[in-house]
């Protein structure tokens, strides 16, 4: 996965499966590249490559079978000591825009990298968090709604 576009595509494939949001919606947040860069910075190229390679293999093997995909992800990634915590961090990052420092056991076992600290990825990542469409609300004070619109039903898409 030397090509940047290939890495981004693989990251999006995994992210779409992990979050339940389509790649269109994920790209629509404008956060795919910053989240990929944040993940790479926190865990390093080797772990990232392993995560995405494993994800690609699971997706290939499952084809369009959702049950097989679910099983494969749980077995190959989410219950894996090294990849599981990283995948869970990616999920949290998409939903709330924050990278959480990996568990101490993971850091002791695999890597202690300086960028692996709890931080909001960017001001945009907070407002673009998937949390907001998931609960059917706008991020308070961060995305315009307009005077008096609280008297009307919400205008945002609920997936």
């Amino acid at each position: 996965m030397a090509d940047d576009n290939d890495v981004l595509a693989a990251f999006l494939t995994l992210s779409a499966t992990l979050t339940g949001y389509s790649q269109f919606r994920l790209l629509g947040t404008g956060q795919a590249e910053p989240y990929l860069a944040t993940t790479r910075g926190a865990v390093g190229d080797d772990v990232l490559d392993q995560l995405l390679t494993t994800s690609a293999a699971v997706h290939d093997k499952a084809a369009d079978n959702e049950e097989a995909l679910d099983r494969g992800l749980r077995a190959g990634i989410l219950s894996d000591d090294k990849l599981g915590p990283v995948a869970r961090n990616v999920i949290k990052m998409w939903f709330v825009g924050t990278w959480y420092q990996l568990p101490q056991e993971w850091r002791d076992a695999h890597a202690t990298r300086e960028p692996d600290v709890t931080h909001v990825v960017s001001p945009a990542s907070y407002t673009e968090g998937l949390l907001w469409p998931t609960i059917g609300a706008n991020p308070p004070g961060a995305k315009g709604q307009g005077y008096g619109t609280w008297a009307s039903p919400p205008l945002i898409d609920v997936p």
Partner: peptide, 22 residues
């Protein structure tokens, strides 16, 4: 025009999503 303000923010959101996709 009051609810139309909310529509304008929605139009902005939809446009931004489209623009960020290849």
């Amino acid at each position: 025009l009051l609810p139309a303000v909310g529509d304008m923010f929605r139009i902005k959101e939809l446009a931004s999503q489209i623009i960020r996709n290849p």
